[in-house]
């Protein structure tokens, strides 16, 4: 192989500007950064106050969730369109929890999903894992509501941006061809601790969950929002949870959850999107 190198000149093109200009810009940036945090904090508090009264009603106390639930979210998300979130409610609290709401504060539609639990959610440790879109650096908040109406919250700050307008579908053709396909998996408990009152399963739905902020590649117009707005999971005829979902849920909605063992019947899922399309699946699982 020939490998002569032609040196036609340096590709060193740092713009020909004078030093004072650059130094000026650096100083301005430092000054802005210095002033920013306070204004920032006020705006954030205001934003949360608005969402909080919209979602939970005005004048409701929200207690510190420490010990009542754990929210796991990455500090820096690798893919803003698929940010993994896990919420865990310890066994001591779980039987009293009737609702769990997940919020990404700065998203255009902040409520990701609200889960309402039924009695087939069980009495052991309760866990919900899902994936969300994050549009800009934001607080992520998980709020539980107990049977007596009290609210408790955990908050994590996540650095991620652009998740809501990220083009869906790495392989556009394959994804569109598979809409509505579902997968329901039950995870065998390797430890075989037969005493555990709950088991884990996962429901996956092929759906673009269009956010309304993505561009149609052919027409150049924004694709109207179209997403999975409701999902119901049952064990036999008893409710594990029902979920109201929004556009902040990632494409191909994916929820890993716990359910009570010892309830008769198969695990079944019914999902409905904003077009009114219904997708269903069921599986016989261990622990019936």
């Amino acid at each position: 192989m020939r490998k002569s190198v032609h040196e036609f000149g340096e590709l060193e093109i740092m713009a020909g500007k004078n030093w004072t200009l650059v130094l000026g810009a650096v100083c301005a940036a430092l000054l802005l950064a210095w002033q920013a945090p306070q204004a920032h904090a006020d705006a954030d508090a205001e934003l949360w106050a608005g969402i909080r009264s919209d979602v939970f009603g005005e004048n409701r106390q929200i207690g510190e969730g420490e010990g009542k639930l754990v929210l796991d979210a990455p500090y820096r998300a690798e893919d803003a369109a698929i940010v993994p979130i896990t919420m865990t409610i310890p066994a001591a609290v779980a039987p009293n929890v009737k609702k769990l709401t997940l919020i990404v504060e700065k998203n255009p539609a902040p409520v990701v999903a609200a889960f309402t639990f039924g009695d087939a959610a069980g009495i052991g440790e309760r866990k919900i894992s899902t994936r969300v879109r994050i549009d800009m650096y934001s607080n992520v908040r998980a709020v539980i509501e107990l049977a007596d109406g009290s609210l408790y919250m955990q908050t994590k700050y996540v650095k991620a941006a652009g998740g809501c307008s990220a083009p869906a579908l790495k392989d556009m053709d394959a994804a569109l061809a598979n809409i509505g396909k579902m997968k329901l998996k039950a995870f065998a408990n390797d430890s075989e601790s037969t005493s555990s009152p709950t088991a884990e399963a996962q429901i996956m739905v092929r759906h673009p969950n269009y956010s309304g902020m993505q561009m149609n590649q052919v027409t150049g117009l924004y694709i109207p929002a179209k997403f999975v707005e409701h999902m119901e999971v049952r064990k036999g005829d008893r409710l594990v949870f029902d979920m109201e979902g929004g556009i902040s849920l990632s494409e191909n909605p994916n929820i890993q959850f716990t359910y009570a063992v010892g309830v008769e019947g198969p695990l079944s899922v019914s999902a409905r999107d904003t077009d009114g399309k219904i997708f269903t699946t069921s599986a016989d699982v261990k622990g019936s």
Partner: peptide, 30 residues
């Protein structure tokens, strides 16, 4: 950006005039 700009300054031995574009280094591999 501010950080990179100052890092860039350090290696800017001979600043080009505004708008000037140098040409790229090439290897003739075949």
């Amino acid at each position: 950006v501010a950080f990179c700009a100052s890092a860039g300054l350090a290696r800017l031995a001979t600043p080009l005039r505004a708008g000037e574009i140098g040409d790229a280094k090439l290897a003739e591999i075949a």
